[in-house]
Design a protein around this nucleic acid. Structure first.
Lengths: 261, 261
DNA sequence: CTTACCCACTCGTCTATACGAGTATGTGTC
DNA sequence: GACACATACTCGTATAGACGAGTGGGTAAG
C-alpha cells in the first residue's frame, strides 16, 4: 500500500483553513481521484491521527464532515468506508399510464424484477383516520379518510414508504379497503368503480430526514429524502386520492416529460 | 422566561440512549411543540451545559445533530437559531409553455416580482467548451458545446445556479451566444431559428451539496440540493439543449402534471 | 476439526481544558 | 452626539485522556 503521505499529502500550517477541513479536503480529493473507491475502507482514525499529527477529535471532525456530505459512512467496529452508491430506481413519467395498470401486476414488483432486484412490500396498514389539514384540503375536506400505508424494499433495503389517502365515502366497503386491493392496485379499482382517472399532480420537495424516517428507511447520514405528494383526479375533476411518499434520495431519480406548448 | 427544565426536561440516566441524543431529542421536541419558533435563539451552549450538567462537547454534539437535520443553524458569535423556513419558489409544470415565452420577459423575473421578491441574475458566463461525457451523450455527441452559466437570487439570496449546453453548430454566431439572448430567452431564439420545441425531459435527483455548491448557494448545513437535468427536444426529435440546474432544496417545490393514460 | 475465548482493532461517547474569533453592549472620552 | 475601546457573551477549533461497544482474527481447549 502506498504511504499515506502520497495519498493524502500533508497539512499546510500556514493556511488559515481549519485543520479538520484540510484533512477532509485531502480525503475528499483522494476519493474524487479514485484513490479510494466505492466501498473502500478509509484509513482508521488512529492512522489519520498518526499521519497528520493531530488529536483524535480533529480527525473525527473531518470524517464527520465527509459523512454529512454523503461521501462516507462509518460502521462501528469496522471502519469508515467510501459510501457505495446503490443502484437507482428510475420513476418514468408514464408510470401511471393506463396500459401499465391494465396488465394487472403491481408496478413496483414488475419493474424491480425486470431490473434484477428482489422486491418486497411490508408494514402494510389500512385504517380509517381523520385527515391532516393538508391532506384534507387536497381531497376536498372529507371528514374521514382511508389511509393505506406500506413500505417498499429492494433486495432487503428499504427505499420508500408511502401513504395513500382516499375519501372514506369513496373507499369504504370496497376492495380498496382490503390489505390487497387486487391486480392493478387501487387505481384499477377506482376506474372500475366509475372514477375514470384523468391526471395526476405531483409536488416534489427534498429535505433531510426526521429521526423516524432515518429508522424506517435505514438511511445513512448525509442522505436526504425526496418527499413526493401526488394527487389523483378523476375525469370530473374530483381529487380521489392523495399519495404521500418519502423516498431515500440515493435510490431514486425521477423523470418527467413536459410539453412545450 | 420559563425555566429551562420546563421547556427541555431532564436527562434519563437509566436510558441507554446516548446523552447527546437525549439532549437533541429534548430540543427537537421543544421546537416541534412551538416552544421555540422559527428564527428563535436556542439556549446557548453554556446554558445547556449548566442545565444538563454535561460537558460542552456533548452539548455541541447534540446541536450538531440538529443542524444536520436542518432544524437549526448556528451563527458564530450570536447563537444557535431555529432555522427559518424561507419562502419557497414553486416551479409549475407549465413553466415552459409557449404562451409564457411569447410574452417576452424572463420567466424568473416575472414570477419573482409577482411573488413580491427582488430577482437577480449574476455570474453570467458564456463560453465554448468540450462537453462532459454525460452532456455529450444527451446532446447527440457534439464535439463542442456552447455553455451558458448563471446564478439566480431572490432578495439577495442565491437559490439556484444553472448551466445550459447547446451544440455549438447550432448556437455559434446567434443571439444565443450573446450574454443577453433577448426577450423570451434562448428557447424563443431557438424557435425563431426554426427549431420548434416539442417537449422537455427532466431528471430529478436530490443529494447533499459539494463544498463548492455550499459556497455558491450559501447553503446552511442540513440543506440538500435538488439536481435537475432538462433536455429540450425540437419537433424533429433532436436534443437542442441540456440545462443542468442545482437548486437549494429549501427554496423550491417542483410541480408536475402527469396524464393518466 | 470445532468451539470458546481472548485480544487487538475499530468507532462511539464523554469529560475537562484552552484559546481564538465574531458579535453586541456598555462606558468613557472627545 | 460620535467614536474608540473594553468587556462579556457567543460559537469555532483543538488537545489529551478515558472508557465502552462492536467486529474479527487468532489461539487454546475440547
Amino acid at each position: 500500500m502506498a504511504s499515506l503521505t502520497s495519498v493524502l499529502g500533508v497539512l499546510d500550517p500556514t493556511s488559515d483553513r481549519a485543520v479538520f477541513r484540510q484533512i477532509a479536503d485531502a480525503l475528499r480529493e483522494a476519493i474524487d481521484k479514485g484513490r479510494f473507491r466505492e466501498g473502500d475502507k478509509l484509513p482508521s482514525e488512529t492512522e489519520l491521527v498518526d499521519h497528520f499529527g493531530v488529536s483524535r477529535m480533529t480527525v473525527r471532525n473531518a470524517l464527520s464532515l465527509l459523512q454529512q456530505e454523503g461521501l462516507a459512512v462509518s460502521e462501528h467496529g469496522k471502519g469508515v468506508f467510501v459510501r457505495p452508491r446503490p443502484p437507482v430506481r428510475r420513476l418514468a413519467s408514464d408510470r401511471f399510464a393506463r396500459r401499465h395498470r391494465e396488465q394487472g401486476k403491481a408496478a413496483f414488483t414488475v419493474e424491480a424484477e425486470a431490473a434484477g432486484s428482489r422486491p418486497e412490500v411490508d408494514n402494510l396498514e389500512v385504517k380509517e383516520e381523520r385527515p391532516s389539514p393538508d391532506i384534507s384540503a387536497r381531497l376536498g375536506s372529507p371528514r374521514k379518510v382511508l389511509a393505506r400505508r406500506r413500505r417498499y424494499l429492494l433486495d432487503g433495503r428499504p427505499v420508500e414508504f408511502a401513504t395513500s389517502y382516499l375519501p372514506l365515502d369513496l373507499a369504504r366497503n370496497t376492495p380498496i379497503a382490503q390489505p390487497n386491493p387486487g391486480p392493478g392496485g387501487i387505481y384499477a379499482r377506482l376506474e372500475e368503480m366509475g372514477h375514470r382517472l384523468d391526471h395526476f399532480d405531483e409536488e416534489i420537495r427534498a429535505r433531510m430526514p426526521s429521526p423516524a424516517e432515518v429508522r424506517t428507511l435505514q438511511l445513512a447520514s448525509g442522505v436526504p429524502v425526496i418527499h413526493l405528494v401526488r394527487t389523483a383526479y378523476d375525469s370530473e375533476g374530483r381529487a380521489v386520492e392523495v399519495c404521500d411518499t418519502v423516498m431515500a434520495a440515493d435510490a431514486y431519480v425521477l423523470a418527467y416529460q413536459l410539453p412545450a406548448n
